[in-house]
């Protein structure tokens, strides 16, 4: 069944429209394992109800041609949640939540390119999911902070214990958050931005 595009399009609600003066946008990526709170985080700080965008990964099929002679391809699609914060009349911040598992890394190309940085959401019950993600971010030279999402049934660790377990240098900020609370999520974003500021001020003063 081919559906008509007009049936599926939603226009932005009036109250969701950006000012016409909006001229540039920046992005921050929220990355973490399944169920760690990525969508919750995006929702708590976003001014719009989180939206979903789809990315496709195309792989050539095993030599099956269809009637039009077009090579059949396997298209894998993965959805990403994102939200938005209007920072001022000109500047807009977008937040993208993306899964950390290695098989989703194909999403990362367009995502981290040009991103200010990343927030690695961590659940202390499953720290191991974060190892690969952190390694990959370090490799790609994407600045990041760690946000430990506090789930009630998780043992609370000192941030220095988390630092040790994740083998992170002292310079990487580790903060505890409750992704359901807007002020808490906002503070995580602020800690990333303040961390970024230290790079700029350090390099400018040398």
């Amino acid at each position: 069944m081919v559906s008509r595009i007009s049936d599926t399009v939603t226009e932005p609600r009036r109250e969701d429209r950006l000012p016409s003066t909006a001229s540039s946008a920046v992005k921050i990526v929220i990355v973490g394992g399944f169920g760690v709170g990525k969508t919750t985080f995006v929702r708590s700080v976003s001014e719009i109800r989180p939206l979903t965008t789809e990315e496709t990964m195309t792989q050539a099929g095993a030599g099956i041609d269809d009637i039009a002679g077009v090579e059949r391809k396997t298209v894998t699609t993965v959805a990403m949640d994102f939200g938005r914060i209007t920072l001022n009349d000109e500047l807009v911040l977008y937040l993208f939540g993306t899964p950390g598992q290695q098989r989703f890394w194909f999403l990362w190309n367009g995502l981290f390119e040009g991103a200010l940085g990343a927030i690695v959401l961590v659940d202390t019950r499953r720290l191991e999911v974060s190892f690969d993600v952190i390694g990959r971010l370090e490799e790609a030279e994407v600045p990041f902070v760690i946000a430990v999402n506090s789930f009630p049934d998780a043992t609370s660790y000192l941030t220095e214990e988390v630092r040790g377990a994740l083998d992170l240098p002292d310079s990487v900020p580790i903060v505890v958050c409750d992704a359901r609370e807007r002020p808490s999520s906002r503070d995580v974003l602020l800690s990333l931005m303040r961390y970024l500021r230290t790079f700029v001020t350090t390099s400018e003063s040398t």
Partner: peptide
Amino acid sequence: SPVSVAEISAHLTLPT
């Protein structure tokens, strides 16, 4: 009004 490529994708439910 100004809209990001990601939002266009979401509103049209088509991949970016």
